[in-house]
């Protein structure tokens, strides 16, 4: 499955502990979001990354401060993995004034420019061209910032995907496109609606790129592939397209019980849950279980603390309604 070159070095222990910390942080966070739904404290819709955490965690660990990331409406994990604190994200989901975007964006649009998280986008495919722009800007300014753009398997069938891949290749942009193939585009198996078996990797050749697939449930493998692709981009060697194979533990969104998936398939993928597997691997490699327990506790405490902080926050003030349409802060369109 993996196209990792044998010469690539696996992550050191410090990095692996960071990966584990990130995995459990994302897991506990997403579970909490689910619980807060059920209590009607989170409105609208949300799309959780439960089961897919290793991809955001692996790339998060491979990036430098200052690198840009863009995500989809399933973007809580990718936002957290860049170091954005939990409380403002939860507050955003709960429609509070202390939300990451003051309560004006919601679950599907998490953005933190301070952390170079340049947006989560709710229209399939839209952010791939935008990622070309952040990469172009870095290239033009002569900075060595890399852009990483995460999206799902369904995105590979929309026009913007193909426009962006060609554009990035022709302009040799420092961008890494990461397709999280969780086997389903919303409710439909991706294989039923795609002309090739690997929706991203099998299209790479059309843009002069190498087909790269990686086990998206293996944080070490993701990290190594990420480091390689990010390094290429940083050295000015152009874009990469990576297909990470993974599985959603839940439905597409809040409204979806995911009954369309065969029981055997769900069972097989739940047995490949990245977190217990990674935990066992670390223990087998000599990490004390108590160290990992400590990380678990820390993550759970952090989620609890952020939940309380978000719950206590007031709703956004009415003054925000007509604020920030324009750069002068106003919504004024006439004199």
């Amino acid at each position: 499955m993996s196209a990792i070159k044998e010469s690539l070095v696996p992550p050191d222990e410090g990095t692996r502990l960071n990966l584990y910390r990130s995995l459990v942080e994302l897991r506990y966070f997403e579970k909490r979001v689910y619980d807060l739904f059920l209590k009607n404290l989170v409105g609208g819709t949300t799309h959780l990354s439960l089961g897919q955490e290793a991809i955001a965690a692996g790339f998060g660990a491979a990036l430098r401060e200052g690198d840009y990331t863009l995500a989809t409406y399933r973007g809580h994990a990718h936002t957290l993995a860049r170091g954005v604190p939990m409380a403002p994200i939860l507050a955003e989901l709960m429609g509070r004034g202390t939300g990451l975007m003051s309560g004006k964006g919601g679950s599907m649009h998490l953005t933190s420019v301070e952390h170079h998280v340049m947006g989560s986008y709710a229209i399939i495919g839209a952010h791939l061209p935008i990622a070309c722009g952040t990469a172009w800007s870095a290239q033009y300014r002569g900075s060595d910032q890399v852009t990483v753009c995460f999206f799902g398997d369904g995105t590979t069938n929309i026009g913007a995907f193909h426009e962006a891949l060609n554009f990035a290749a022709v302009w040799k942009l420092p961008v890494v496109f990461v397709c999280e193939n969780n086997l389903y585009m919303e409710y439909t198996p991706i294989g039923d609606v795609t002309a090739v078996p690997r929706p991203a990797a099998d299209r790479a050749g059309a843009y002069g790129l190498d087909p790269v697939t990686v086990d998206g449930n293996d944080p070490d493998a993701v990290y190594v592939v990420a480091r390689e692709a990010v390094g290429r981009a940083r050295r000015g060697e152009g874009p990469s397209l990576i297909e990470a194979l993974t599985y959603r533990h839940g439905g597409h969104s809040r409204a979806d019980p995911a009954k369309y998936r065969p029981e055997e398939e769900v069972k097989a993928w739940l047995a490949r849950d990245p977190i217990p597997i990674y935990r066992q691997r670390l223990i087998a490699d000599g990490v004390a279980a108590s160290v990992l327990d400590e990380i678990d506790r820390w993550a759970l405490d952090a989620v609890d603390e952020a939940t309380e902080e978000a719950k206590a926050a007031p709703p956004p003030g009415a003054d925000l309604l007509l604020k920030d349409v324009w750069a002068d802060g106003s919504a004024t369109w006439r004199n």
Partner: peptide
Amino acid sequence: TPISEQAILGAAMGAAMTGL
């Protein structure tokens, strides 16, 4: 650019939000 209006405007947007 190629005949790719989404790519043209996406690139413009991404560049504008990062300093150009």
